[in-house]
Amino acid sequence: MTKHILILFALATIFSCKNDKKDNGKLNVVTTTTMITDLVKNIGGDFINVQGLMGSGVDPHLYKASEGDVSKLVNADIIFYNGLHLEGKLVEVFEKMGSKTKTPIALAEEIDKATLIGSDYFASNYDPHVWFNITYFKQFANKVTAVLSEKDPKNSVNYIENEKQYLEKLNALQLKIKNTIDTLPKEKRILVTAHDAFNYFGKNYGFEVVGLQGLSTATEAGVQDVQKLAAFIIEKDVKAIFVESSVPKRTIEALQAAVNSKGHKVEIGGTLYSDALGNDGTVEGTYIGMFEYNVNTIVNALK
């Protein structure tokens, strides 16, 4: 175990000795990614206290727990995280917490592994960007509702009702997205982004997805990767490529320059939200708003 983690857990031992009293009698729930935070807020409503560790634009692949994070985690009643090694540098923290205080809940464990996309970039051997399959996100909602209801049975009816309303919104989102994507000819459905966060999206909606950095932002694209992808863009006559909000845009700008230097014009079609939602208080700051924004941006740029 790294020295960083050892220090954090020395602090965690101190924090764990504190009174575990809930604020205002509500469950204290800690979440990792912004997508999970938004989901839990929709299900829990005003009946829980929610603290998200990661904010807008934060890359979960590279995120490290701070002393403040450990305090939140140790004093939480419930911890929800994505799993499949998305939160790579938090895995050791969660494993230690599971053995000492509580078992953090990896929502992706609810998914049938046989349906997942394989990946050699992660210890789980699966692509962890599962929220881009809305059906999987519905399974997340089911699990969150079940856990909240078990921990707080007096409010179970409220959690179940909130889930019902949220699932109706997700059903409407699926229909709206399909109708928008249907306006884009199949031969134009080539999505080039900073890293391969959109494979589940591509699988569902018939896009060929190519990421410059691979599945994890922990790996960096080299000159060969840029040149190879530039040749692909020219061959396929791709009209636009996309920046991601949680990944530095310099790699996509380098790709655009490489394509343009060969006499082929490619536009940067906009910024997509991949590993994190937009700012709080904006449409893109919600899972539903983010998904709809991404689809509109992709379709409008590739038409």
Results as ranks from 00 to 15, higher is better:
Ile79Ser: 01
Ile79Leu: 07
Phe80Ala: 03
Tyr81Trp: 08
Tyr81Ala: 00
Tyr81Pro: 01
Asn82Leu: 10
Gly83Lys: 04
Leu84Lys: 07
His85Ile: 04
His85Lys: 08
His85Ser: 14
Leu86Thr: 03
Leu86Asp: 05
Glu87Met: 10
Glu87Gln: 02
Leu90Cys: 09
Leu90Val: 08
Val91Met: 13
Val91Thr: 13
Val91Ile: 14
Val93Arg: 04
Phe94Arg: 09
Lys96Leu: 14
Lys96Asn: 11
Met97Trp: 07
Ser99Gly: 02
Ser99Asp: 12
Lys100Met: 15
Lys100Leu: 15
Lys100Ile: 10
Lys100Glu: 13
Thr103Arg: 15
Ile105Pro: 00
Ala108Lys: 05
Glu109Phe: 02
Glu110Leu: 03
Lys113Tyr: 09
Thr115Trp: 06
Thr115Ser: 15
Ile117Leu: 15
Ile117Trp: 10
Ser119Phe: 08
Asp120Pro: 06
Phe122Glu: 06
Phe122Met: 08
Ser124Cys: 08
Asn125Thr: 13
Asn125Ala: 12
Tyr126Ala: 08
Asp127Arg: 00
His129Thr: 07
His129Val: 10
His129Ser: 09
His129Met: 11
Trp131Glu: 13
Asn133Arg: 10
Asn133His: 12
Ile134Phe: 02
Ile134Gly: 10
Tyr136Met: 07
Tyr136Ile: 00
Tyr136Gln: 05
Lys138Leu: 06
Phe140Tyr: 15
Phe140Leu: 06
Asn142Leu: 12
Val144Arg: 02
Val144Leu: 02
Thr145Tyr: 08
Thr145Val: 02
Thr145Gly: 05
Ala146Arg: 11
Val147Asn: 01
Leu148Trp: 05
Leu148Arg: 02
Leu148Thr: 05
Lys151Tyr: 13
Asp152Trp: 00
Asp152Glu: 09
Pro153Leu: 07
Lys154Met: 10
Asn155Lys: 04
Asn155Trp: 05
Asn155Pro: 03
Asn158Phe: 09
Asn158Glu: 09
Tyr159Trp: 03
Glu161Leu: 09
Glu161Cys: 00
Asn162Gly: 07
Asn162Cys: 01
Glu163Lys: 15
Glu163Pro: 00
Glu163Trp: 01
Glu163Leu: 06
Lys164Phe: 03
Tyr166Val: 01
Leu167Met: 12
Leu167Asn: 10
Lys169Ile: 01
Asn171Arg: 02
Ala172Gln: 13
Leu173Thr: 03
Gln174Asp: 15
Leu175Val: 11
Leu175Asp: 12
Lys176Arg: 14
Lys176Thr: 14
Lys178Thr: 13
Lys178Gln: 14
Asn179Cys: 07
Asn179Met: 10
Leu184Asn: 12
Leu184Glu: 03
Pro185Trp: 08
Lys186Phe: 08
Lys186Thr: 14
Ile190His: 06
Leu191Lys: 06
Val192Gln: 03
Val192Ile: 15
Ala194Leu: 02
His195Trp: 05
Asp196Pro: 06
Asp196His: 04
Ala197Asp: 00
Asn199Gln: 14
Asn199Lys: 12
Tyr200Pro: 05
Gly202Glu: 05
Lys203Ile: 07
Lys203Arg: 15
Lys203Asn: 14
Phe207Met: 10
Phe207Glu: 03
Glu208Leu: 12
Glu208Ser: 12
Val209Ala: 02
Val209His: 04
Val209Pro: 03
Gly211Arg: 06
